Simulated scan of single mutants.
Amino acid sequence: MDVEEEASRILAELRAQADPVRAEGEKRYLKSDLAHIGVPVPALRKVALSAVKSAPTREELVALAVTLWDVTEEGRPVHEARMAAIEVLVKRVALLEPRDVELTERLVRDSASWVYVDQLAEKVVGALVVRNPDLAAVLDAWVADPYMWVRRTAMLALLAGVRAGDPDLDRIGRYGDALIGEREFFIRKALGWVLRELSKKDPEWVAAWVEPRVGTVSGVTLREAVRHLPPEVATRLKPASR
């Protein structure tokens, strides 16, 4: 693969589908300072994934993702290029190695929006951790990181194990206690999402974790956590929420 050529092709095809009205609307919705082309996600995904239809090498995949991520227009990163970078990493995540967690950290630290972080957290970082359990030690550091989006990544990365049927209950509990007092909406929501997904498979654990913390857990977290619990359990827990 000629990485520069593929990145240029992807950008050209995205720009050929540019919709300035959509770009402005998306920019406002995301409160974004990036340059926006205005391409719907399904179309963007189709263009991006065409570059990795034939499995690239790990080195080619990483180089393509970094090249796309670093694209700028008038000094600003390009939203669709960053989304394309994430799409190729998600599609070929099986090629990534434990050392690539450093790349994911760089991308998360470059991000300032859930639209990039959430995909990276679950489908790239989470997938790496599921395949390489020792990498969970990285999440232990991230959950205490000063940067809110890194903390959110640590929590959401646990979703991969939950969905795979092998939840890391110890870390879910510990991270939950570490983040339970957060004022950031996106952290509260992340904790709630993990508890919500876990409750689909282990409602007893979720109820047992939430109940002694109902005086501390935020309403945002609790609403998500009890969404799939048995009605009588959800009713018992809800009135005590803040």
Rank of each mutant, 00 (worst) to 15 (best):
L198A: 06
V162L: 07
T221C: 05
P203C: 05
A121R: 01
A16D: 13
V88L: 02
L169I: 04
S54C: 05
D140Q: 02
E74P: 00
R183F: 01
R28S: 12
P146K: 06
L191A: 10
T57R: 13
V130W: 13
A84Q: 10
G192P: 01
V214H: 00
L34S: 06
G25V: 03
G215I: 02
T67I: 02
W193E: 10
A160C: 01
Y116V: 00
P20N: 07
V108M: 02
Q119W: 13
E4G: 13
V101F: 08
Y175K: 06
R15A: 01
P77K: 00
L44C: 00
D170S: 12
D202R: 13
L30F: 13
G165E: 09
S113I: 01
V194E: 11
L34V: 02
L139T: 02
L30W: 08
A55T: 15
L191T: 04
D19T: 08
W193Y: 07
V194A: 10
A234Y: 08
E60V: 07
E74L: 04
I187D: 04
T104M: 09
A55Y: 06
R151I: 01
D2M: 06
S54N: 11
H79T: 12
E59T: 14
A121V: 01
A35D: 12
V217S: 02
M1L: 10
S199V: 02
A144S: 11
V124K: 06
T221P: 03
V41G: 10
A121M: 05
I187V: 14
A225E: 00
N132H: 15
A141V: 09
E4S: 15
W69T: 04
Y175G: 05
D2I: 08
A35Q: 09
S50N: 13
L107C: 05
L44R: 12
K46T: 14
G215D: 13
V138M: 03
A48M: 09
D118W: 06
A157C: 04
W69Y: 03
L89S: 07
L195C: 00
E4C: 10
A85C: 07
S241K: 12
A35V: 08
I187K: 11
L11I: 13
A12N: 08
L34C: 01
A160F: 07
R242Q: 11
V206K: 03
E102A: 15
T216W: 07
V210A: 06
L14N: 05
A178S: 09
R188A: 04
T104I: 15
Q119N: 12
V233I: 14
R183H: 06
R188N: 14
T153K: 11
A136F: 03
E6I: 12
D110V: 02
L107Y: 09
A207N: 07
V117T: 13
V52R: 01
A164F: 04
K91H: 14
